[in-house]
Amino acid sequence: MTALVQFDDVTLGYDRHPAVHHLDGAIAPGALIALVGPNGAGKSTLCRGIVGLLKPLAGTIRRTLDARDIAYLPQSADIDRTFPISVFDFAATGLWRRTGVFGGIGARGRAEVARALAAVGLSGFENRAIGTLSGGQTQRLLFARVLLQDASLIVLDEPFNAVDAKTSADLLELIRRWHAEGRTVLAALHDFELVRTHFPETLLLARGLVAWGPTREVMTPDHLARARDMCEAFDDTAAACVAEPPHAHAA
């Protein structure tokens, strides 16, 4: 079984400072992975690297799927909520891969958008402006768009942040449905209980990889304590990393 995404000694970061250091591993097709780690562990950076928004400082990220076959939900989606666009139209942009810049969505597309909005509990909101939605409803709308993207790999960065229990339960149900459909899902999460109950695989990150494997074996008190300790601060005067091959610094 070939991996969807393969990490070979990947270092991701900003301005030469690593946020994810020397990561090796692979995302297998159909996996349901929780990405766990303290604040500043590099979870968001890794998500951005996976979807191709951030190029690695060193190492390679190999994808065996088209970048457009990845749906990405950023942590605090950079949405202009004052923009005069309806809930329906916003969700419909999820069909972009099929419609492109010019294609229409047609009757079939309209039915799909209506179904997606129903699936996240936003039926009846179609004609509302997105600015009138609450935080939880906005998150539901973003999930509806991911649903419509019909992607093989779904990357969710802290999808349950600032969302109430009912909403997270509903959205979690969607994630389980995606998993059952054979899609690959990677979600950055902070709720250990939720990870232990619902996610078979866990990637524990603290700038470097602490552990990656079956959740039971990864989420041990020992590993979690190590993750807390490994999150050292961003050092402006840090020397060039010696663990990297010298040519990596040429760029």
């Binding site: 990845i70 950079d78 949405i79 492109g100 810049v101």
Partner: peptide, 23 residues
């Protein structure tokens, strides 16, 4: 008319547009 869709999506959600299109 030709750039309408990417222009609108880039206003609302630029990161999303970058993940689905180079337009």
């Amino acid at each position: 008319a030709a750039i309408y869709r990417p222009l609108v999506v880039e206003c609302v959600d630029p990161v999303f547009l970058r993940t689905v299109s180079r337009a």
